[in-house]
Design a protein around this nucleic acid. Structure first.
Lengths: 224, 224
DNA sequence: ACCTGAACACCGTTCAAGT
DNA sequence: ACCTGAACACCGTTCAAGT
């Protein structure tokens, strides 16, 4: 909270720049959530007047775009041609995207709240499409497969974030769901009451994502 | 014995109720989008002072919950045991959920912005789990499959809504993406430039969803 | 060029008051 | 019980002014 006091020395007045603003924005988003991501809170975290930020960004929307671009660029592309099969590389690439979205739930919100304008994440898409073609898919099938993989990845990350949000703190995200389902009237919801523990176990983030991802990849690449 | 109504010529003062408020809220959300969904705008649409709504709902959050519940309850469950195979019923059920989310993009926003507390959509989940068990999946596999199907459905609907939002009006959602990809530097993004038309075609909503859904179902039910 | 405080037009909601 | 207007504490952003 308290920023490092830069001594009483005559500190250069212009200690603010785009980089510092973006860093504080990511911190604020990841730590306090989208609702607390305010221009005023951002400026306060930077130890500066609210309007100082406007000297480096046109407005909040430009900051949102920049944050999204910065985080999407952070996806670690696995080294190419490491002797694995295209399908294994695909798996790892998708997991990297999921990990990013899962580590920074704020990006999901930014993706939802504002359409993508720039070339953010383009490198990842290029790589995935290339791998899909390498497995033998024809061009329309590769395009549909790429879209389906991204759709599932975004949905799974959103689902996980929603679960964490609902659980509040550090508790097990499935716990609330288990008790909720277990307490349902068994006449109307026999399967949910019965499968409450299993459904709760399926809220475990990465393992669940991998289960669905393998099924999806299996279906998309069937026969290749 | 229906009592003869007093039939006062005088128009009843209290013409506002929860039902009317919810109807206006859905209209406002679907027509003007989440940003325009304001308590003041809602009241104005109802021809009433802003605070009148607070006589029927505790606040905006309660309206959000009620709208979500109302729309999720609208998912048309296909008639049970219509002679089709469980897999065909599963497909139709998932398509119904997708259609609802696609027709009312606002629900997606409501799902993102606020965790689910009530039993909304529980009936659909019950049905899907039952069908998955009927295909022969064991309990953990059925739970994971149910979660994966919902994750993919939410992600696909969100993707489609995002594309429509980016396209602005009634244009082809893939058009913008096609030109954007086609104009990329071909040295860095050879596949994207090459597959721009196919990737644009994959932004067509329901057909793309069905492609991914069939792949996912195929992978989840492989061997059963 | 960079930063500031006051001010404007919004927002959700509280409150005291009307019927 | 239902509805109202004024007011409060927020928000993003404009503006004129400081350095």
């Amino acid at each position: 909270m308290t920023n490092p006091q830069p001594a009483r020395r005559r500190v250069p007045r212009n200690t603010l720049n785009r980089e510092r603003v973006l860093g504080a924005a990511v911190d604020l988003l990841d730590h306090a959530g989208p609702d607390a991501f305010t221009m005023r809170a951002l400026a306060q975290r930077l130890g500066v007047g609210t309007m100082a930020v406007y000297s480096h960004f046109k407005g909040k929307d430009e900051i949102i775009d920049a944050v999204r671009e910065r985080l999407l660029a952070e996806v670690e592309l696995p080294p190419a041609g490491s002797g694995r099969t295209p399908r294994e590389e695909l798996r790892e690439l998708c997991r990297a995207v999921y990990r990013l979205l899962s580590d920074h739930p704020s990006v999901l919100h930014l993706l939802t709240v504002r359409p993508v304008h720039g070339d953010e994440g383009t490198a990842v898409v290029e790589r995935i499409v290339g791998l899909l073609l390498a497995t033998g898919l024809d061009r329309p099938a590769a395009a549909r497969a790429q879209t389906a993989l991204m759709q599932y990845t975004v949905g799974a990350a959103l689902w996980t974030a929603r679960g964490r949000q609902r659980a509040g703190g550090h508790e097990d995200p499935g716990a609330a769901l288990r008790t909720r389902f277990a307490e349902l009237p068994a006449e109307r919801y026999p399967h949910l009451v019965d499968l409450a523990p299993e459904l709760a176990s399926a809220q475990d983030g990465l393992p669940q994502y991998e289960h669905g991802l393998d099924a999806l990849l299996g279906g998309l690449l069937a026969g290749y």
